[in-house]
Every structure is written in structure tokens, then in C-alpha cells.
Amino acid sequence: MTTDAAAREIPRYTVAVIGGTGPQGKGLGYRFARHGHDIVLGSRAAEKAEVSAAEVTSRLEGVAGAGAARGASNADAIAAADVVLLAVPYDGHDDLVASLAADGALAGKTVISCVNPLAFDKRGAHGQVVKGGEGSAAESAQELAPDATVVGAFHNVSAVGLWSDDDFLDEDVIVVGDSVEGKQVAIDLAASVTGREGIDGGKLRLARVLEPFTAVLISINRKYKVHAGIRVSGLDAH
């Protein structure tokens, strides 16, 4: 069931965006901050993250009720946050998550993965097969950080749309995970992107479907020269 964000008061979160200097991470961070959440963009190099945070802050000038944006190293960003968003390329994903989890930094955190294991060849984009079809980036993150609560969300949202001037994007955010509480955090944050709460799409293993589906949207976007998203119909009656 989708719910208009105005129908209930959504908690204010502090979100560490790991991969916050990339288009997807910076765009999601901007959306969260635009609608009242505080963000810490993380990077291996704090200076690089600070530059991206300054860009977000500039975009937020004059936006009533906007949250704060700053940059930091990955470790410092996580330490300052309630929620961690993984918005990094799949290449090197496992090594990065393992390093972040090694010292317990992710323990007790809600970790939202929007990582898409994609590959490209002369026929276009396609999903990589993870663990012989029995895994996903989100599931790998949960295995590598067992003391965190990992959910999958925001896989199919266009980075171009996120950085646009539109107040909200005309699409839905599907959230998957094995924790009701963890999914609720991502469902809440989805309202910053679409103006309505995200949709509970089921268990974490269904990230195996959501992650490679991004390749279909890339194909549609190239064919029609748009920035397509996903809308789920039939929920308004529930």
C-alpha cells in the first residue's frame, strides 16, 4: 500500500551515503536533504566528499525545511549516521563492505543497498549473475555485515531524475528485506524521492530481481531517450 507522505509524520534521519560522490549517491543524498533529512556524503577521500556536499548544499539554498549536508570519510560518515546507504559500483563492493564491517562500524545500523550488479556489452546492459543466481549485492552485504540490518531499495531510480529540479519523481520505490523495521526506514526515505512512502516488495532475496531489472530500464531509456521509472498500479484501493 502506498501512502502519501503527508498522511503520517516521517522520522528525520541522518543518512551516511557511501558512494556519495557518484551520481546515484549524490542524487539520493540531495533528495533526502531536500525533504528534511541530514546527510553525510562518504568517500575514501574526505576532501572529495566535501566537494560533493558543497554542491548539494548549493542546490538546497532557499529550500524551506531542508536538512544539512556535509562530507566525510566513509568511516566518519557511518559513525555520524543512523542509516547507511550503499551507492557504490558493484565492482569492489564486497571488499568495501567487508572493510566497513571489519571494525564493527555497521553493527546495529540499517543499511540500504541500491547497488546494481550490471554489465555492458555490444547488445547493451544486462544483469550479472551473482552466486549462480542464488544471490544479490544486497544479500552479499548482509552476509558480510551480519550485525547490520540490510534492505534493498532505490535500485531503479534514475540519477538524472534525482538531480533534477522536480520536487518529486513520478515513480515508486520498491523495498525488499527480511526486517520489518529495516524496511520501514527505506519506506520512509522513499517519500523524499516520490512524495509517497515506498512499497514493501517482500524478502531480501527478491533483490535478485530488482537489481538486474535496472538493465531493462536502461534499455528503455536508450530506446525512447527518457529517464523511465517504475509505477506499481492497483494499490490505492488497499
Rank of each mutant, 00 (worst) to 15 (best):
D82V: 08
L118S: 00
G42Y: 02
V115Q: 00
K26Q: 14
A159T: 08
E55T: 15
V173L: 02
A54W: 11
S158C: 10
S136L: 10
V88T: 01
R59V: 04
G195A: 14
K48T: 15
D121N: 15
A125K: 04
A33D: 01
E181H: 11
I112V: 15
V180H: 11
H35P: 06
R208C: 07
A72K: 01
A137G: 05
R31D: 03
V15M: 11
H155Q: 14
A80K: 03
V160N: 13
I10L: 04
A81N: 03
A77H: 05
P23T: 14
V176N: 01
E171V: 04
V88Y: 02
T3Q: 03
G202L: 07
I230V: 15
L28T: 07
L144P: 06
A190L: 07
R59S: 07
A72Y: 00
L217C: 11
L41Q: 03
G42S: 13
I18P: 00
V185T: 09
H126E: 10
G135Y: 06
A159D: 08
A68G: 09
A101N: 04
H93N: 10
R59I: 00
K26I: 05
G71D: 08
H238E: 12
S192P: 00
H238V: 15
R205A: 10
G198H: 06
I18Q: 01
E211M: 09
E50S: 09
D95L: 05
V63Y: 01
G19M: 05
I187A: 09
R222A: 15
G65M: 03
I199Y: 05
S140C: 11
I112Y: 00
V151N: 04
L162H: 06
H238F: 14
D178M: 12
L118Y: 04
D178H: 11
A75T: 10
V56R: 00
G182C: 12
A159W: 09
T2L: 08
G36H: 14
G108F: 14
I39S: 06
D172Q: 08
S136Y: 05
V111E: 10
A77C: 10
I174D: 05
D95G: 04
F213Q: 07
L28V: 14
R12V: 13
G36F: 15
A72H: 01
L162C: 10
I112C: 07
V216D: 05
Y90H: 13
I230Q: 06
V130N: 04
F154P: 01
E197F: 11
D147W: 08
A5D: 07
A7G: 11
I174T: 11
G42D: 00
R222F: 15
N116C: 12
A33R: 02
A53T: 01
V130P: 08
L86Y: 03
T2G: 15
Q142P: 01
H238D: 10
R123Q: 13
A228F: 09
A5V: 08
V216W: 03
D95F: 01
V40Q: 02
G42L: 06
S113W: 07
L28W: 02
G152K: 03
R123I: 08
